[in-house]
Simulated scan of single mutants.
Amino acid sequence: MKYINLVLLFLAIISCQKEVEPDTKMETIKYIERASGEIQSENVPGEGMLKWLYTSATGKAALNLLVKRKIVSSMGGWYMDSRLSAKRIPEFVNEHRINLNECEFSDIKHYKTFNEFFYRKLKPEVRPVEEGVVSPADGKILAFQSMNDIPSFFIKGSEFNLQTFLGDESLAKKYETGAMAIVRLAPADYHRYHFPASGKASESVKINGHYYSVSPLALRRSLKTFCENKREYCTLSTDSYGEILIVDVGATMVGSIIQTYQAHTSVNKGDEKGYFAFGGSTLVLLFEKGTITFAADLIENTKKGLETTVKVGENIAS
């Protein structure tokens, strides 16, 4: 019976039909479209379900007792890897206005499961690699030139502990006075991620954790989510920008973080590093103090409390 209940809960989550309690309130998430400079409102997939999970007493109970656990995300991964899930692709493409002409295979019939489409490859020419340090993913970015600037963005009481996040005291010490970028991938985004600079990449270190959502609706409530979710990190040793720490953070319904690069080898800026299976996900970049300067527009937008859209290969720092 418990497995039937788990299946029912999972189906409720992916259908996102849960009604929000009447007194539940959550702020509208706004961001800057970098190309135009216009402020946009984000359409958050599953917004009703997320509001229920993160703001109501009953939702929080379900979140902590069940939703954050591996079995729920594993069930989600099983479904998204099954041929049954392929029927969701056309609706997903239409709802999120995904440009199929950018995809390596533009015919959705090529993809036999939803996950095959979710971590689809793009044509190399649609993501040109620019000068300087570039975005490792398509998504929305926050850029903090100093770790001291982080508390100003998130709500009071939402603490970010670098040592807890990395699980390594000496590593935390290395980056505690440096800069940080958070690149958040929404479900509709391209979900392969790439190296932000050229250098030598170490092996990935895995940190076990839960599977909380990394939706902005959840993160605004608690940045500590990053310190509790499943994550992996590697060090990219560069000639021009010091040692960049790249942290891949999983989330609810992300059954897998897949690394496709070869550890202890030299990589070029823009080379693929890996991909996320279904769900929203996040990449965190940590830089040693004084090694980079973020683009002015990204810093200014972050100070205003706004994320900025970025694409793979697009300049974010020099």
Score class of each variant (00 low, 15 high):
S170D: 12
F114D: 03
S222A: 13
M49L: 15
R83G: 12
D149N: 11
I150A: 04
L236S: 05
D271W: 07
G290P: 06
E102M: 12
A251W: 05
E203I: 05
S73N: 00
S256E: 14
T291Y: 08
F276D: 01
N268R: 13
C16V: 06
G209D: 00
S318R: 12
R83D: 10
N115R: 01
H96A: 06
P136V: 00
G274S: 04
L306W: 05
R231V: 05
D239K: 10
A57T: 14
C234L: 15
V247C: 11
L8F: 08
L223E: 08
A317D: 07
H194E: 04
S256K: 14
Q163D: 15
Y175W: 09
L162V: 08
F278C: 06
S41M: 00
A251D: 11
H194C: 08
V44P: 05
T58D: 12
K304M: 13
K70A: 13
S237T: 14
D81Y: 15
Y211V: 01
A62Q: 04
G132K: 05
A86Q: 15
D23M: 07
P45G: 04
K87V: 13
F226S: 00
R69E: 10
G209T: 07
S106G: 09
K87S: 14
F117S: 03
A317P: 12
N115P: 03
L162K: 08
F294N: 00
V310P: 15
L286M: 10
D81C: 12
E102P: 03
A35V: 12
K174D: 03
L142S: 05
L185P: 00
A296M: 04
T252Q: 14
K68Y: 06
T225E: 03
L53F: 01
H191M: 04
K123A: 01
K51C: 12
Y79G: 01
S36W: 00
S36H: 06
S204C: 11
K269I: 09
S213Y: 03
A277C: 15
E243S: 12
V72F: 02
E95V: 13
E176R: 13
A263D: 10
G270W: 09
S73A: 03
T28A: 13
R88P: 02
E91N: 14
N43V: 11
A296C: 08
Q40P: 00
E243G: 07
V247Q: 07
F10S: 00
L8T: 06
A188E: 15
L122R: 09
V310I: 13
H194Q: 09
V129F: 06
E42I: 05
E203T: 07
D189Y: 06
I155W: 11
E116V: 04
D81L: 13
S237V: 11
E228F: 11
N101R: 10
G167D: 07
T291R: 11
A295I: 06
R192C: 11
S318P: 04
Q163V: 08
H96Y: 15
L217W: 07
V312I: 15
V183L: 14
S170L: 15
R34M: 10
H110D: 02
R220V: 07
F92I: 10
L217D: 05
T252F: 08
